[in-house]
Simulated scan of single mutants.
Amino acid sequence: MKILVTGGAGYIGSHTCVELISAGHDVVVMDNLSNSHIEVFNRMKNITGHDIPFYEANLLDKDALTNVFENESVDAVIHFAGLKAVGESVEKPFMYYNTNLISTLNLVDCMKRFNVTNLVFSSSATVYGFQETMPLSEDFPLSATNPYGRTKLMIEEMLEDIAAADASLSISLLRYFNPIGAHESGMIGEDPNGIPNNLVPYITQVASGRLKELHVFGTDYPTDDGTGVRDYIHVCDLADGHVKALEWNALNTGIEAFNLGTGRGTSVLEMVEAFKEVTMLDIPCHIQERRAGDVAVSYADPSKANRLLNWIAKRDVMTMCQDSWRWQKNNPQGYKTGKITEGAY
């Protein structure tokens, strides 16, 4: 199949492009590079041996989107493109609702006009809101605690309604937990703008000297060591989940939600200790008050994806740390480090 990957130059998108090509699919990327780097295409070519057709454009631009579908015989779409910072969404809710909701509607409208019925949507575990019971299952009641999360939930609801009205559609809603790690080559990985919002890139930047210390938000949670517990999943396992969802869609119609997680929780301090063990480096930590809106524990029940998609997360926390550190060492300034040629790793 030829797959249009919106936001395909980003962290999860780029790893998914590599997995798609490895699985024998053709890939086309549409991305406006607002939170990604053009250098990633050189890296993906180095890994896969394939040039990836790239359209630098915004999904809010209907003409640019139509141009992609006119030029490429698209069979299916994986939709990553969108804004994703929780704090920014609180400060700029209109921008988040306008960008995330309208871009998705534009995409679905274009798919309909070109008779493309296979869609995988990048959702999030944020749609579960606050839950008392773990692990989180797809049949739990849904809610959201910030504008970013609400856009994910609203898009899921929009796609549910659209699928109910069109029996030809095949849609998978993939609810991610906490993706970390990097491709084993060390050539592509997470390259956040500014100070990282996520734990592991923060740890790697402290280990490399880019940042002074790791801020640990709260040590008084009702967990074994008092720090928050999350379900960390290797980005390559996550990418493989998208390939499996596309294959599921090709054989089934309707809409289904799937958790993509390991089903195991790891605390902040456990992750720090794992990273220390992998790197033999110290990670200075500064303890701070809890952040508003953070939950104590969150981890997935991935059994539905295991059963229906024939998918399972294979990589453990130590592998996640090793791959994250390899990426950071090879790319001390992220993609701005410069082009890595074949054999550099």
Rank of each mutant, 00 (worst) to 15 (best):
E157N: 11
A64F: 07
A163I: 10
V120M: 14
S89G: 07
T133K: 09
F275I: 03
E270R: 14
G209V: 11
I38R: 12
Q205T: 04
A165R: 14
G293S: 07
I195N: 15
L159C: 14
C236N: 12
F80H: 10
R150G: 02
T99L: 03
H15F: 02
S208R: 14
H37N: 06
A300I: 02
T104Q: 06
P192M: 11
H79N: 14
Y221S: 02
D224C: 14
K2N: 12
W325G: 03
L136E: 07
V272L: 08
E247W: 04
A23M: 11
G343S: 07
E132K: 10
N32I: 13
I21F: 06
A245E: 14
R291V: 10
L211H: 11
N330D: 15
S208G: 08
A274I: 00
H183C: 03
G87A: 08
R307G: 09
G149H: 02
D61E: 05
K112D: 14
V235G: 00
R264V: 09
M318A: 05
I195K: 15
M271F: 06
H286D: 04
G149D: 05
H79S: 08
I195V: 15
A144D: 02
Y97G: 02
C321A: 13
F130Y: 02
L269Y: 15
T16R: 01
G209Q: 05
T66K: 13
G265N: 06
F217I: 09
T16W: 00
E70V: 04
G181T: 05
E88H: 12
R315D: 00
D139L: 15
S172P: 01
V127N: 07
S36C: 04
I255N: 03
L169T: 08
V206R: 03
H183G: 04
N71H: 13
L214W: 01
V235C: 01
V200N: 05
M187K: 05
C110F: 00
P179I: 01
V40G: 01
Q205K: 11
G263H: 09
I162A: 09
E256A: 07
Y97D: 01
V74C: 05
P53T: 05
F69E: 07
R150S: 12
P147C: 11
S123R: 02
N310A: 14
G186D: 11
G7W: 04
F217M: 10
T6Y: 12
T319E: 00
H286E: 04
H50F: 08
N32L: 11
